[in-house]
Amino acid sequence: MPLQYVLGEWDFRDLTLKLRPPVFIPRPETEELVEMILQYHRPRINLHFLEVGCGSGAISLSLLHEIPQAIGIAIDQSHAAVKLTEHNATRLNLHDRLTVHNIEVVDSFKIPNDIAGPYDAIISNPPYIFHDDMKDLAPEISRYEDTKALHGGHDGLEVTKNILKMARYLLKHEGSIWFECDPRHPTMIKSWLDNHPETDVKFVDVGYDFSDRARFCHLKYIPTKVKT
């Protein structure tokens, strides 16, 4: 069993988060994703964000902790994750700026009123492991952690693509999308966006993790024509 579950908690940046199986255990790479987001959004006045797949709440809670004026909405398809994020938010006294909903993002997804935007940013560490790689996972991952938080479909981009498709309905003009992904994904996302100009999402930047692998994507919603 992963040590983090045995202890029931682990540190993520400045926060100590309660962790319970099967909710996904935050990885150190994600600490750097938060760093990237902070660097971009800290100088800006407001941050109203939506996190898709919040798990233990690591990203949302770090952002709220480090940007005092930020407000966030977090969703997760897992009831356990929603409960855990709420629990962590209350413990860290950040619950007044975070709302958590049990919602799954699926294809041709009708946005519920609960999470209607517009947002400054959509942030997600979606499941991004390729279907073929799932069998190679270490047993302490595959046996204890929620498969739905890891398995990203045959190309690892199932949830990512759903988010990109709905970005136009959720984001403000020039709102940002932040992803953590597999090192193979940035090029795949770029070519997917080329084939789907109707999303109006432009690729901005690739971020590299501490071992110099392409790990993060920064995208923006820039509509070419004014919405009617």
Partner: peptide
């Protein structure tokens, strides 16, 4: 310690 292997969601180490 995570320099080798795939990193990210693929690995969990303390």
């Amino acid at each position: 310690k995570r320099a080798s292997g795939a990193g990210g969601q693929h690995v969990n180490t303390t």
